[in-house]
């Protein structure tokens, strides 16, 4: 499985055509939605070029599984769980219609969506929380799993090491996906990681580790699918390193002058979306016309969402919720608050 960024690894060839088409559409949605947010909010984090990892990791999970997406490109997971796209865009803009009602600018939705949200900016701690979801599943003896993604830079946090060790000791049902885009803000991975492949870290925790071509969505997804099956059957966690490249800046308005333009151009040529398109057109699963109408559908959905979100008022002062810091004891505890909506790509 260790063939990073070859031209079409052939992995995932056994995936059902409907899954392959779903993966493509998930990438299209992620690209369109996140780019729209970047255009509207210069502080949003571009995920362009990394959609192979994002879609490959979170597509096709069961309704009762948990997802813990990286902060770069988080919205696909929510869309897959039926989030209203206009509320996601509203969230990125701090509008009143956002799921967090302006409290967290990042990524939160109803608990019923089963997604570990970002409520603070400290990298790495969500890995522990995601591991805890897997602990809950193990504890209840169910076959539910958690998929958790994070950046390459975040694997240098102690929280990453502690969580992976714990998950392995307890054989927790979790798949760790490293969205390796080669950068932590301005620092190239080679400046802060003494190893070429992050997947080798897995052996230190006694779990399987593999490196896949992150720009080949089919390769990512088939690796995740196998690891999910392994987790479901009680065999414990897996670390998957999916190698990709951050085509945009760290944030949307970051000129990113610390990178080499020729390297950037080379990675542009490996864009995961055209790659998947050409595989699907070559295999005869899609015609170019099908592809165009998929783009049309996705763009229309996102355009409509942007229109609604832009027209929406800013977060309202009453939503500051000074009296909502604690849960109401009389209401008891609810693990599944809020509605879920019709999943995108259902």
């Amino acid at each position: 499985m260790s063939r990073p960024n070859g031209p079409g690894t052939g992995e995932g060839a056994d995936l059902d055509p409907s899954v392959r088409i779903g993966l493509l559409k998930a990438m299209m949605l992620s690209r369109t939605l996140e780019s729209a947010c970047c255009e509207l909010n210069p502080r949003w984090f571009p995920a362009e070029g990394e959609e192979g990892v994002i879609a490959g990791a979170f597509f096709g999970l069961r309704d009762d599984d948990t997802m813990a997406p990286h902060y770069r490109g988080p919205f696909l997971a929510y869309a897959l769980r039926g989030a209203d796209l206009s509320r996601l865009v509203g969230q990125a803009l701090g509008k009143a219609n956002g799921y967090a009602r302006g409290r967290a600018l990042g990524f939160t939705g109803p608990a019923a969506m089963g997604i570990v949200p970002w409520v603070a900016g400290d990298l790495g701690t969500t890995i522990g929380v995601a591991t805890g979801c897997a602990l809950g599943f193990s504890y209840e003896g169910s076959d539910r799993v958690t998929v958790c993604s994070f950046g390459d830079g975040t694997t240098n946090r102690g929280d990453f090491h502690e969580a992976l060790n714990l998950a392995s000791v307890w054989k927790l049902p979790i798949v760790y996906v490293c969205q390796h885009n080669q950068y932590s803000i301005s620092l190239h991975a080679s400046e802060v990681l003494p190893i070429e492949q992050i997947s080798v870290r897995a052996s230190g925790y006694g779990m399987p580790g593999l490196t896949v071509d992150g720009n080949d969505v089919f390769a990512v997804h088939s690796a995740v699918r196998d690891a999910v099956a392994r987790a479901r059957s009680g065999e414990g966690p897996t670390l998957i390193e999916a190698r990709t490249y951050r085509l945009g800046g760290h944030w949307a308005s970051d000129p990113g002058g610390y990178r080499l333009p020729e390297v950037q151009d080379a990675w542009r040529d490996k864009d995961p979306i055209p790659r998947a398109v050409s595989e699907l057109v070559t295999s005869g699963d899609l015609t170019q016309h099908d592809v165009d109408s998929m783009w049309d559908e996705v763009r229309q959905a996102v355009d409509a969402a942007v229109t609604v979100a832009k027209a929406c008022p800013d977060a309202r002062l009453e939503d500051i919720g000074a009296n909502e810091v604690f849960a109401d004891v009389s209401e008891g505890m609810s693990a599944l608050r809020g509605e879920r909506g019709e999943p995108w790509l259902a």
């Binding site: 701090g94 967090a100 302006g102 967290a104 800013d314 309202r316 810091v325």
Partner: peptide, 13 residues
């Protein structure tokens, strides 16, 4: 005494 909210109007308040 509540967490710092992120949206500008809430934060300004």
């Amino acid at each position: 005494h509540h967490p710092l909210p992120m949206a500008k109007p809430l934060r300004d308040a």
